[in-house]
Computed example of a mutant assay.
Amino acid sequence: MNFFWIWSGKRLKRYFIAVVALLFALGIYYADHQHIQVFLPFDSGPSAVYSVDTQKKEIALTFDISWGEERAGPILDVLEQKGVKKATFFLSSPWAESHPDIVKRIVDAGYEIGSHGHRHDNYSQYNEAQIRTQITKAHQILSKVTSKEPNLIRFPNGDFDKRVLRIANSLGYTTIQWDTDSLDWMNPGTQKIVSRVLSKAHPGDIILMHASDSCKQTHEALPQIIDGLTSKGYKFVTVSELIAGAKTDTKAVE
């Protein structure tokens, strides 16, 4: 009887080790608020940038805009009032095309423009021709509206797969994600947004926020976020400046 249990224990241990090894080979699952990605422990092609590895207290505030015209103005007001001259806005091309005055204000203020794609869909559900069409159509519109060609892209809902990454890379784009999600898209309350950002922010961080009308508390939380980060010694930079100044933290996708 004792021999049976010893043998069974050894066999169970071998099975456990095999399962762990298999999971490591397949990757680690990570879920954000809209999708699940698989991070592979080896280089499998173009990757998304989530943050950068740096000791400098630099941080990138990023804002996605896909619809509405009531929230972007107050957010720009706060950035101006607080003297924040560096931030990155990821613009949906249909929104940019229908709101040229707001886009002009963003550009004139010197903020960086990235693409948020054309249709606000999960691009991993498209075939390769459709993915390419969505990225290039957005590129054409944003280049015309801003008079600058974007080279950063954050896909709608943060959704992508390895095909999306590969096609974006072939079109000259770097895919940008985030390491700190403010959760402002959930409208959880101003103080919850502030507390979440200030507790999670770190050197080289990319912070996700939104300037679409559905996010009603971002402009209220932003002053406290800026003051809190500034008091901790952080300097605000664009995503491009963050990438240029340090090693990027990227994760490959299956």
Rank of each mutant, 00 (worst) to 15 (best):
R154D: 07
I113N: 02
L61E: 05
A221M: 02
A72S: 12
Y126S: 06
I17D: 09
V49K: 00
Q34I: 09
K232P: 11
F155Q: 08
V19I: 15
E58G: 05
P150W: 00
S66C: 14
D77Q: 10
G172H: 01
N151S: 10
E128I: 14
S170R: 08
V253C: 14
G83D: 09
L23A: 11
R11P: 08
E254K: 11
V107I: 14
A252Y: 14
D43L: 14
Q134D: 15
G172V: 03
Y50Q: 11
I17S: 10
V52M: 03
L79K: 04
S143N: 04
L152Q: 01
Q224S: 15
D161F: 09
I141A: 04
T180M: 11
S98N: 14
L229Y: 03
G228R: 02
T133S: 13
V239Q: 03
V194D: 01
F160V: 08
T146N: 04
L142Y: 01
V52P: 01
M1N: 15
S44P: 08
A21Y: 01
I131F: 01
K86G: 07
F24Q: 02
P94Q: 13
D213C: 10
H33W: 08
L91Q: 04
N2D: 12
K10T: 15
P156D: 06
I6Q: 13
H210Q: 08
K10I: 15
S47W: 00
I207V: 13
R71K: 13
Q130R: 12
Y234G: 09
A21G: 13
T230F: 07
L198T: 09
D159E: 10
H116N: 07
S98I: 15
L208K: 00
I225T: 02
K86D: 11
D43G: 12
I135F: 01
K137H: 11
W7H: 13
K247A: 12
F236A: 06
T62G: 12
W185A: 08
K85E: 15
C215S: 13
M209K: 03
S147W: 03
G158N: 02
I193H: 00
L229D: 05
V197H: 00
I17L: 15
T190I: 11
L23K: 01
N2A: 14
V38D: 04
I75Y: 07
Q37E: 12
A211H: 00
W185F: 12
G45S: 05
F89Y: 10
D181Y: 07
A96Q: 03
V78A: 09
I207S: 01
